[in-house]
Write a protein that binds this DNA or RNA. Sequence first.
DNA 1: TTGTACGCGTTATCAA
DNA 2: TTGATAACGCGTACAA
Lengths: 331, 331
Amino acid sequence: MPVTIKDIARVAGVSHTTVSRALKDHPTISRETTQRIQALAQQMGYIPSAVAQSLLSRQTWTIGMVITTIADPFVVKVVEGVEQVAQAAKYSVFLATSHNNPEQEVAVVETLHRRRVDAIIVASSRVGSLYSSQLDRIQVPIVLINNNAEGEYLHSVAVDDAQGAALALQHLVSLGHRRIGYVGVNNRPKLNRRRLAGYRQALAQAGLAVDPTLIIYPDRETDLECGQIGLQKLLDAQATAVCCFNDVVAIGLLMACREQQISVPEQLSVVGFDNIEPATYVAPPLTTVAQPLLVLGQRAMEMTLHLIAGHKVQDQRLSCQLVVRQSTAPV
Amino acid sequence: MPVTIKDIARVAGVSHTTVSRALKDHPTISRETTQRIQALAQQMGYIPSAVAQSLLSRQTWTIGMVITTIADPFVVKVVEGVEQVAQAAKYSVFLATSHNNPEQEVAVVETLHRRRVDAIIVASSRVGSLYSSQLDRIQVPIVLINNNAEGEYLHSVAVDDAQGAALALQHLVSLGHRRIGYVGVNNRPKLNRRRLAGYRQALAQAGLAVDPTLIIYPDRETDLECGQIGLQKLLDAQATAVCCFNDVVAIGLLMACREQQISVPEQLSVVGFDNIEPATYVAPPLTTVAQPLLVLGQRAMEMTLHLIAGHKVQDQRLSCQLVVRQSTAPV
DNA sequence: TTGTACGCGTTATCAA
DNA sequence: TTGATAACGCGTACAA
């Protein structure tokens, strides 16, 4: 059993109230007793119970972080950002994985509420808007990160996918490319649509027409396969460069290029999206669009702290950055 | 304010005691009232407070997971395993990062104790044995995962690095290699030593002598550089194959091979360690030793549950597996 | 300057 | 079958 203030009180021969006050340097306690009791507490290894404190204060100094799975490299960086800011603010973080399963997502939110977390951060949920009725009940602030649901009545921090895609396209245009393809995926339609929209818009802004034969959706489940399959159609459409939905698609494309003896970037320039670690290691190292994942997490937690403090906050949209490596070159 | 049993009691016109009992199907409450109250609770959106329950029961159904940083790919998988088992057992997980800083490690352990977690799991600590005095105080079970500290009085789950390294070497021997190098690193001496020991032992078992010129420690900080620098010495020592400390070292080596036109695996067979994601994407895909990271986390949490239940447990050592890809071939 | 009494939400004991 | 009361560990209003 951990030491309690009553234990200390008994040893010190005072009431537990005095101990409680002495430990927080309450001015009405004599300096003498304060010091005596603090020394005693130290020596007895007293650590206050957050459980008891929370019951009284109605605050747990705890937040819940709902993620699909920690295996996702996105999530990892975001969690790191959240944890950094949380720790600095004396908050602890509960990790709760939903496996992209709506039922489980509802269940973990309930668990978090049961634990009386002060706020909840949800990363990359595909559900999001689903649990509105649940949210009315639990009155804690909820912050959504990169949510793919359309319902937007919750606070959110997100990356500007369209801007990122535009960045990639502009880079290729500035290298002189005119026939620029896009290789997308089918299993994340909303996200894909946002990135494709950025591609289209930037294309228009550059005064180039959108050629539908350059926009490719391989009918495969894994991103890597999408990239591998996509190459042939790109070549058929006479593309000299390509924006990929993400880095894994791009890496699949690079693999196909190697097999078919297409040299990158001489014959084909390739741009990815996400800046995952392997992008550094592939040959050639991949030019890609980086999301500020760490910042995303930090901002989300900062927003959460504001909300807990009862302040108003504004939704945030963060810009992406282009990371130029060796998979792109002039035409 | 969340709904409490007193709120329900008021509405139902009974005492809060009755509500408490009705909600857990206590046999002494009439079926009629039980049903009435359960329906009412449901309708009012009642979720019991784990905080209040914990105060009384002295159990929080909570564990703390101490990690250096979530950015480490190791840690990610391990956390996933822990979380899986924890969630299934109705436990919630606090994430606490120590950044490999002893002071911070002590601080986070204190925070976890303050939150009255039922147990603590520490992953890959470099400190480990340091906080023994702290541990005497907080009376919860502690499980160490892959701890690099020597003090072994705590419960632990670890991977058998020596066995893994031996696996790599045996694979190369079976392919007919006789001059097999090892490229290590300097900044994780204990881990490096364990893997090197496995290499040496397997070499002896295969009836081969240990040639010191084949054992290389590049004087660089990053693993990637160690691999890049290591190549020349390997060639000087006339190695036909090499075991690397980890995959990143191996990838660095592959990069150097490409630059110097050394073809892998024809001229040099390369084996990594860890089986990180990029190992799949590099050219050629890397043969490597995989640690059962997910299982490591699962076992650690299972052990934790046993300890919480008051059972005796035995320390565990898990075997690695060889993943053969295309970076190795017969001499 | 210190102590008494109460309450936070829940469960357990004892009484009705 | 139900209710009153105390207790978990802590903080605070009020009394001494």
